[in-house]
């Protein structure tokens, strides 16, 4: 399975954000997208996720699930946590578990149950508390838990390590390595170094 994007260009508010960008990502590999602020890292992730129509070019997942679009193979972990403060932590996670359609139901893609996901991220003690009572770091970890409970091969992470403390960052590193080992792919827009071994980098330059 491969994530392929060819001569992608994207416009936001009439401004050309990036143009004729191409990338291919093999299974089991991770890609860090770097570059100064405003160069379009987040826009690239949103284009890969299918949330934004590219001005030109196309994104496809080769030998993935033919009926699904490229976006439906991806988990999108953006700046917003998609959590409802009025619902408890478990209710939030249980909803996404039931709601999101899995990207591929291959054998090696065993998703975790909500409880396991919370334990993997160290917030299982707050399971029955309303999400409103969580700290920023805990909310980010709860958003990360969504990636574990539904099996999708491609992870699109926007600033994954932001608002995470050292322990959580280490946990994130382990989860990412496990995902890659299972044949998954990760595209992360980030400034800091990724808690991963070998990571390809794609540097976006501001258009000359």
């Amino acid at each position: 399975m491969r994530l392929v994007a060819e001569n992608l260009s994207c416009e936001r508010g009439g401004r050309r954000v990036f143009s004729d960008l191409a990338l291919t990502l093999e299974a089991g590999r991770a890609l860090a997208v770097t570059g100064p602020n405003g160069v379009g890292k987040s826009s690239l992730l949103r284009v890969l996720a299918g949330l934004v129509q590219p001005a030109s070019g196309e994104v496809r997942v080769e030998d993935g699930d033919p009926e699904l679009s490229a976006g439906e193979h991806c988990h999108y972990y953006g700046h917003l946590d998609a959590l409802k403060p009025a619902l408890t932590v478990l209710e939030n996670l249980a909803f996404w578990t039931a709601f999101l359609a899995p990207g591929r139901t291959g054998a090696q893609w065993q998703p975790m149950t909500p409880i396991e996901a919370l334990e993997a991220l160290g917030i299982d003690h707050a399971g029955d508390l309303p999400a409103a009572y969580l700290s920023a770091g805990q909310r980010r970890r709860l958003a990360l838990a969504r990636l574990l409970v539904v099996a999708r091969p491609v992870w699109l992470l926007d600033e994954p390590t932001s608002a995470l403390d050292a322990a959580s960052e280490a946990r994130l590193g382990q989860l990412m390595s496990a995902h890659l080992a299972a044949g998954g792919m990760i595209v992360a827009a980030t400034h800091q170094k990724m808690p991963l071994a070998d990571v390809g980098t794609l540097r976006l330059e501001a258009p000359a």
Partner: peptide, 10 residues
């Protein structure tokens, strides 16, 4: 107490 429970691990 719930706020406390959330912030500190038990």
């Amino acid at each position: 107490m719930q706020l406390q429970a959330a912030s500190a691990r038990v």
